[in-house]
């Protein structure tokens, strides 16, 4: 029996043993190509799990399956103790069986994209308040107040009336993170949040993510920023050819990997 997790900020052992997010035996194929070959992963409250691996190892696909942006072919997803209801769709993949449930899951499971995906026809502020108003039913004033606090938190309060195209990549990604935070998610999924950025803008986004980790937020992070992953993560998962090849604490995975493939990967990324 696993021990109850320790809250990273308070240091208190939580009484709730319910994992924030639990994935069991996730499979995903594109036609004959099997991308994910049975991945299981458990994130407890306050965990920061970085998912590493070379291109094509299935990291992003795995993340996108968790909120059904991609439809897995098999497996179970449990979120805050509730199992996601899935049914077999026409193409053979699993689709949401209860659209209300998946929309609720998504609203509580933040997702940050590589390409930000801000809505270019809305100001930064409108980008952030749209979902809280439409999905959570917040009033405009309420949502705006929250949004302005979040913009200040990610350091672009002065850009609230700007349009996404008027921002740098780093600022756009910070706005996208603020948009996700406005939904008060229980878990945040980051899909290579700095891969589309110029090198000089990577740090400003990583600093925001680091601040979120320090707050004790539960996060899954697909990234190529190795040293960052080592610093902020409570756990590292190394994917190779659709399988979990290595898993453990950062020190364990970075310094003493047991699998050959992981050793190779780590030594080439030093």
């Amino acid at each position: 029996m696993a021990q109850a997790p320790i809250n990273r900020t308070t240091g208190v052992r939580s009484l709730v043993t319910q994992p924030a997010l639990e994935i069991r035996n996730l499979h995903k194929s594109y036609g004959d190509l099997e991308v994910l070959k049975g991945i299981s992963l458990t994130a407890r409250d306050g965990d920061v799990i970085s998912i590493l691996g070379s291109s094509g190892s299935g990291k992003s696909t795995f993340l996108r399956c968790l909120n059904l942006l991609e439809n897995p072919n098999d497996g179970e997803i449990h979120f805050a103790g509730e199992q996601l209801k899935l049914k077999r769709g026409k193409g053979g993949a699993l689709v949401a069986a209860d659209s209300k449930q998946i929309n609720r899951f998504r609203s509580e499971m933040g997702f940050v994209f590589q390409n930000f995906n801000l809505w270019p026809h809305m100001s930064v502020l409108d980008n952030i308040i749209e979902a809280p108003r439409r999905v959570l039913g917040q009033s405009k004033a309420e949502a705006t107040e929250v949004a302005e606090a979040l913009l200040a938190k990610v350091g672009i309060a002065d850009k609230r009336h700007a349009f996404p195209n008027q921002l740098s990549g780093g600022q756009q990604q910070r706005a996208a993170i603020a948009r996700t935070l406005a939904m008060q998610p229980k878990v945040i999924l980051f899909d290579e949040p700095t891969s589309a950025l110029d090198p000089e803008m990577v740090q400003e986004v990583l600093n925001v993510i680091r601040a979120l980790a320090d707050e004790g937020r539960t996060m899954l992070l697909v990234t190529h920023e190795m040293s960052f992953a080592r610093q902020v993560s409570s756990e590292i998962v190394f994917l190779h050819q659709g399988r979990v090849e290595e898993q453990g604490t950062p020190d364990q995975v970075f310094d003493n990997p047991t699998s050959e493939r992981c050793k190779q990967f780590m030594s080439s990324h030093r």
């Binding site: 942006l69 998504r106 979902a131």
Partner: peptide, 9 residues
Amino acid sequence: EAARALGMS
């Protein structure tokens, strides 16, 4: 996708 990922129907 961004809209759907935020929970919009």
